[in-house]
């Protein structure tokens, strides 16, 4: 009985955070801020489902399943990489050296540390 409530509790928590993550995509009003909602709120959303699944596995089916731990691990490894890729696209298309804060002693951010496209073409044709 208690485990049922526990499982239900985890599922509801997961549902709420999953919803907040998706709602954030609509509500937040600039691209970089939108990135925050899905990278974080969904971690706990998916995490809640996985916890519920583990508790169900132990209490109802009577065996411990470690697949959930692996899913959590993969999620934690891939979420920052995906976020970084989206952020990089944003930096390329919408930000310039002047719109960003100073890059410390190096003077330029790695995304902008490329030769202008025209120059590249000249060099490849030469």
């Amino acid at each position: 009985m208690i485990t049922e409530y526990l499982i239900a509790g985890f599922l509801i928590m997961a549902g709420i955070f999953g919803f907040v993550g998706s709602f954030g995509l609509i509500k937040l009003n600039d691209p970089m801020s939108r990135l925050h909602a899905p990278t974080k709120a969904t971690t706990l959303g998916v995490g809640g489902v996985l916890l519920a699944s583990m508790v169900h596995g132990i209490a109802v089916e009577g065996h411990l399943s470690l697949h959930e731990v692996m899913i959590t691990l993969f999620l934690f490894l891939t979420a920052p990489v995906t976020a970084l890729f989206i952020a990089k696209v944003h930096l390329h298309r919408h930000e310039t050296l002047k719109s960003l804060p100073p890059a410390g002693e190096d003077g330029i951010w790695a995304t902008h540390d490329v030769e202008p496209e025209g120059e590249e073409e000249k060099q490849s044709s030469a």
């Binding site: 970089m32 990135l35 952020a87 951010w109 790695a110 540390d113």
Partner: peptide, 16 residues
């Protein structure tokens, strides 16, 4: 916070 970029020589992180 989301880390967005590294400076050209890796001495600073750009965080949003």
């Amino acid at each position: 916070t989301v880390s967005a970029d590294l400076s050209a020589e890796g001495h600073a992180l750009l965080v949003h």
